[in-house]
């Protein structure tokens, strides 16, 4: 569905270009993935809202010509929850970084998943805190180097997919910036999905993660992503393998796509039962 040459510029906010992202950063590839997905779905940008947090990924809402909110660190999903509840017509997309999703905002992520509210979270996971200059993240792999783990991280990383599945997200996928053929389809699927969706995209940060971990330039890091992941042969839960076995075969693909009562629908059912007549929207 993503033919090269498709003009995505109508979806972008030209006055905010160029982006703040470093040369070689994977976040622009993810933004392109989101734009491609939106284009394929033909959504009216008047009815699309981006709600971002803080960090490199948090800047993404600035670059889309839509209703854009750049909120506080980790809280984007809570802002998005209020927005979606009162205006269910909006398609709400939440770009999140490692810190937004897995550290400071982890609580909001698991509760958004538990409620199954119709929001699409796109986790830009580059294994490091880029905006502040290369500190360790909850997604930094064990033994990886950062400015706050100069001798190697002694903490295991969070697996976004496992967390999202356990918390009850009804659409869960993982892909990488190398796998651009799959990425827009997975994101489009997430946007179309009626419920809480999490799409984790493994992204490269050549400026910090690459340099501190001697992974080379951006193209080398794309190949590194290719080599450390393995595409699921079919849709389904992640294979039962240990973390050690996962080296070189971190599963990517679509892990869950299921229907469960969606939160805003549930709430509007409650309004009807309470005799509340007109809806808030």
């Amino acid at each position: 569905m993503t033919k090269p040459g498709i003009d995505l510029t109508p979806l972008l906010r030209q006055e905010m270009m160029p982006t703040v992202w470093c040369p070689g950063c994977g976040h622009g590839i993810i933004a392109r993935g989101i734009a491609t997905a939106l284009m394929s779905l033909g959504l009216d940008m008047d009815q699309v809202a981006f709600v971002g947090g803080i960090g490199c990924s948090g800047r993404a809402p600035f670059y889309f010509d839509a209703n854009s909110m750049h909120t506080t660190h980790g809280r984007a999903l809570a802002f998005a929850t209020g927005l979606k509840m009162v205006n269910p017509k909006l398609t709400v997309i939440v770009p999140m970084g490692d810190g937004d999703s897995m550290a400071i905002g982890g609580n909001h992520l698991i509760h958004a998943a538990r409620r199954n509210i119709d929001i699409t979270a796109v986790v830009f996971n580059n294994s490091i805190y880029g905006m502040t200059g290369g500190q360790g993240a909850p997604t930094s792999p064990l033994d990886s180097r950062s400015t706050t783990s100069p001798m190697g991280s002694i903490e295991p990383a969070f697996d976004t997919v496992e967390l999202a599945l356990a918390a009850g997200a009804t659409y869960v996928a993982r892909t990488t910036t190398f796998d651009f053929q799959e990425m827009p389809q997975l994101i489009a699927g997430a946007i179309r999905h009626h419920g809480f969706s999490v799409v984790e995209v493994l992204s490269q940060c050549p400026t910090y993660y690459g340099r501190l971990n001697k992974l080379g330039e951006a193209p080398d890091m794309l190949l590194y992503e290719r080599d450390r992941t393995k595409l699921l042969e079919a849709f389904g839960p992640p294979p039962e393998i240990t973390r050690e076995e996962m080296v070189g075969q971190l599963p990517i693909g679509l892990f869950r796509d299921e229907e469960r009562p969606e939160y805003v629908d549930q709430y509007h059912g409650l309004i009807a039962r309470a005799g509340g007549g007109k809806s808030a929207s």
């Binding site: 809280r75 809570a78 209020g82 927005l83 009162v86 205006n87 609580n107 909001h108």
Partner: peptide, 18 residues
């Protein structure tokens, strides 16, 4: 909400929702 940080965040988000 899951905490007071989320409570005020949701209220501000809702304000922008109208």
């Amino acid at each position: 909400m899951e905490d007071e940080i989320g409570s005020i965040a949701a209220a501000i988000g809702a304000a922008w929702g109208g």
